[in-house]
Design a protein around this nucleic acid. Structure first.
Length: 502
RNA sequence: GUCCCCUUCGUCUAGAGGCCUAGGACACAUCCCUUUCACGGAUGCGACACGGGUUCGACUCCCGUAGGGGACGCCA
């Protein structure tokens, strides 16, 4: 029987089915095998995308793609003051940069508040929720008393079954849900296993505020249900909320989705990753010169593993990703490892793309790169990308290729151009025009013979002053290759400038 | 204060009771390559938090302790 259903599931396309029939009808048919995986990415519009949010998004996306399902995108803007178009755009930009896409429209939770209220009232009508007229002062008092007495919850359920009085005039009530009062509650979590909590730990929490707007707890459940979400993959900080959310699912008689709670990302010092640690948002990582494919790989490995594999490209990740190998402990963010992964993907990256990205960085620095500058960059890109860990480093390494004189000399470079240094640079300069060809090989032999004749064969004594003159720096990529790319005219110009300036 | 979760090299992790003399990667150290800085190659250093059980046998299972993280809003 199971087999037959499985086969027919492959024959039909479950996606089509979803559109053809109303969701409710579809849900009546309880063919597990027909169900496509539907995950969701529900950020709060905070104005930027936290790196932890990005990882959660990545995991949801990977899981949906792995199973040929969908990842939905919903903005958690129940609190209307949070809603801002720029903030939503920031999240979308972050996702785009990360290379993560989603299915369907961006759903605004705020726009669905009528539906949320409808559910709350339905629960009241069914006797599963009730109006509560407590004032903030009363609640504050209850909270204090509960803390003093060491009780687990504070709300005393005074409006639940035996209201103390008739509803007071002119007070708009909140709606509270009736949480179970005894027994053990279990959440089956794909990462943490079965998590148990005593019902006594659960309050009759508020699902609809006095102003008629839904609380987060209600909104997530209603939206996840209406959107057909089958797998909720989210941060560990929601594990406790899950018990509350399940109360709503049960009261409505809805199917509870599969849960997977990911441990949080900690800062290098083991404390919760915060602004204090520097970069927390994906745009900051972009600005630090990290490649999105490197971020994906690094974030994937932070908490998930596939044996000893370290370098896992996204296509491979889609084939491999599962919930079973998510680690249970929180992981620390480690820049060294990120740098290593990024360096790897830099080597793999297309030269043209790297040139464009590097030129973007120069623009930010106020350096306008000419066609010639770009050509020089491209000519040396194979070497440049093999030595840099980030785009910013690459840009630093290659800046001398795209800049014109006058430029500043690093302190260590200036030191190279003492009298001895200047003498050697002059010798090289005088012999440049005599070269049979202005190539790296010819330049190298010139340097070597100059070293042999004037500096006892010590090549460094020639290269270092020359490097200082041509690049303004004490270290650089291969000097003779750079000189070849710069060309005779430019090299002469730079040497003359250096000799005159220092 | 109450509850929940977690704990293998400095860091990310492999490990499904004997395959473990605990494997890989990053970082670090040394050496090689080298005109500088890097890249690359080789080698090395380095961990089962602690204490009790269960078992012929425990990194793996159970219970405590300690440490870390999270949640307890008319925030999300």
């Amino acid at each position: 029987m199971a087999l037959i259903i499985e086969n027919s599931a492959k024959a039909t396309t479950s996606n089509l089915l979803l559109y053809k029939y109303p969701l409710e009808v579809f849900r009546e048919i309880e063919y597990q095998s027909l169900m496509t995986v539907i995950t969701r990415f529900p950020p709060s519009p905070t104005g930027f995308m936290h790196i932890g949010t990005a990882r959660t998004g990545l995991f949801n996306w990977l899981y949906a793609r792995r199973h040929g399902g969908k990842m939905l995108f919903r903005i958690e803007d129940t609190d209307r003051s949070r809603h801002s178009e720029e903030a939503v755009q920031a999240i979308i930009n972050g996702l785009n940069w990360m290379g993560i896409d989603w299915d369907g429209d961006v759903v605004s939770q705020f726009a669905r508040s009528d539906r949320h209220a409808e559910v709350a009232h339905e629960l009241v009508k069914a006797g599963k929720a009730y109006y509560c007229y407590c004032t903030p002062e009363e609640l504050e008092q209850m909270r204090e008393d509960a803390k003093k007495e060491g009780r687990p919850t504070f709300y005393d359920r005074r409006w639940r079954d035996n209201p103390p009085s008739a509803p007071p005039e002119g007070v708009s009530p909140v709606v509270r849900i009736k949480a179970p009062m005894s027994g053990e509650r279990v959440v089956h979590d794909k990462v943490q296993g079965d998590v148990r909590v005593a019902a006594e730990q659960l309050d009759d929490f508020i699902i609809l505020r006095a102003d008629g707007t839904p609380t987060y707890m209600l909104a997530v459940v209603v939206d996840d249900h209406d959107m057909g979400v089958t797998h909720v993959i989210r941060g560990d900080d929601h594990l406790n909320n899950t018990f509350r959310q399940n109360v709503i699912y049960e009261a409505m008689g809805w199917d509870i989705p599969s849960y997977a709670h990911l441990p949080l990302i900690l800062g290098p010092d083991g404390a919760k990753l915060s602004k204090r640690h520097g970069a927390t948002s994906v745009e900051e990582y972009r600005d630090m010169g990290y490649l999105p494919e490197a971020m994906r790989n690094y974030l994937l490995r932070l908490g998930w593993s596939h044996g000893d594999d370290e370098i896992i490209e996204t296509e491979q990740a889609i084939k491999w990703f599962d919930l079973e190998h998510i680690n249970q402990g929180a992981a620390r963010f480690d820049f060294d490892k990120l740098n290593f992964v990024n360096a790897h993907y830099m080597k793999l990256a297309d030269n043209d793309r790297l040139a464009d990205l590097t030129i973007d960085i120069y623009k930010l620095r106020g350096i306008n790169v000419s066609e010639i500058g770009r050509a020089r960059l491209m000519a040396r890109m194979d070497e440049l990308k093999s030595r840099a860990k980030t785009l910013v480093q690459l840009a630093d390494d290659a800046e001398f290729l795209v800049r014109d004189i006058p430029y500043e000399f690093e302190e260590k470079a200036a030191a190279q151009l003492n009298e001895d240094g200047k003498f050697i640079v002059r010798v090289i300069h005088d012999n440049l025009t005599g070269l049979s060809a202005f190539t790296a090989d010819e330049l190298e032999s010139l340097c070597k013979s100059t070293a042999d004749y004037h500096r006892d064969g010590k090549l460094g004594k020639v290269m270092m002053p020359l490097r200082a003159a041509v690049t303004g720096k004490a270290s650089s990529p291969s000097l003779v290759h750079a000189m070849e790319v710069l060309g005779l005219e430019e090299v002469s110009k730079r040497i003359e400038y250096a000799l005159s300036k220092l």
